[in-house]
Design a protein around this nucleic acid. Structure first.
Lengths: 155, 155
DNA sequence: ACCAAAATCACCCGAAAGTATGAAGGATAA
DNA sequence: TTATCCTTCATACTTTCGGGTGATTTTGGT
């Protein structure tokens, strides 16, 4: 787009220059006035082409692009799911299985229900939940859920 | 400052133009070549002054600045965005005290901690929490918290 | 093949949570 | 005044949760 426009400008300039030169040549053949006052003629040519140069420059100069970043605040409702904080999970050393248990915990499931859902024994779920509590530095499952949601580890 | 610079540029341009014209006049007097190929001479003049014009324009014209506004989306999770659903509370028949217990429950507090916070006995908290579970139709405190948040009864 | 981490399970015990029932005092409205 | 609801508390019992310890298997990476 911009490239095309530039080419058009250059073409137009070339054409106009050629036309002018032809016109001058024709005038030169017709009248001999230029021989008398060649300096004035050259001065006129100089001025005309200076103006043309300026015009060309104005047309061709690519504008400096000033990128202005406008911060647009977007408020998110709870309905919009926020990204889970993968970094935090790794940082806390929470394993995949623990995360699954934590997720079901947050849904209000009991250890026994979680065990049934994950096809493991109740003891296994207890082991995982204990691990979660240690890693999240909490004492109860309610605290774990609260903190996990706050840290965007779940939901 | 800028005005001075511009004047200097214009002066320089004028001087160089004058010098060029004088030079040409001198050359014209010295040699007669120009008479033979005046069109080439004029073409050279045109090119030189075009370049000069371009140079002048580049020097004098303040750079075009195209401001491109980029909207950067900043996601803000509101801490207290949505109002609590008073209607739902009344509809479910949850009392003031029960709501207080529910609120502390959601903060991960144990029944004993809630009792201490509200200056009541552990048994009272248990009674309230039982009432909450019945009214919310849940079996566990984790479920109660989850449902209460979902219904916007708390937070 | 080997090592470390993860996942699995078991047992015990105490703490916390939850259920059921009853009861008493206070506020409020019919 | 009576009825109703809220709040408070208690006792007894069951269930669930959580801590501690130990052990085996699975898995992923060097």
């Amino acid at each position: 787009m911009q490239f095309n426009t530039k080419h058009k400008e250059i073409l137009l300039y070339g054409i106009s220059m050629a036309v002018l030169l032809l016109l001058l040549q024709w005038l030169e053949a017709r009248f001999i006035v230029f021989n008398y006052r060649l300096d004035i003629f050259i001065g006129a040519i100089a001025i005309i082409f200076t103006v043309l140069g300026v015009w060309l420059a104005l047309k061709l100069i690519k504008p400096k692009v000033e990128t202005r970043i406008v911060e647009k605040e977007i408020y998110i409702h709870q309905t919009t799911p926020t990204e889970i904080n993968q970094q935090e999970i790794e940082q806390l050393g929470i394993s995949k299985r623990e995360l699954e248990v934590l997720d079901l915990m947050a849904r209000g499931m009991s250890n026994e229900e979680i065990a049934a859902a994950l096809f493991v024994s109740l003891n296994t779920v207890k082991t995982h939940s204990s691990g979660i509590f240690v890693k999240l530095d909490v004492k109860r499952r309610t605290q774990a859920v609260e903190k996990a949601k706050r840290l965007r580890i779940i939901q």
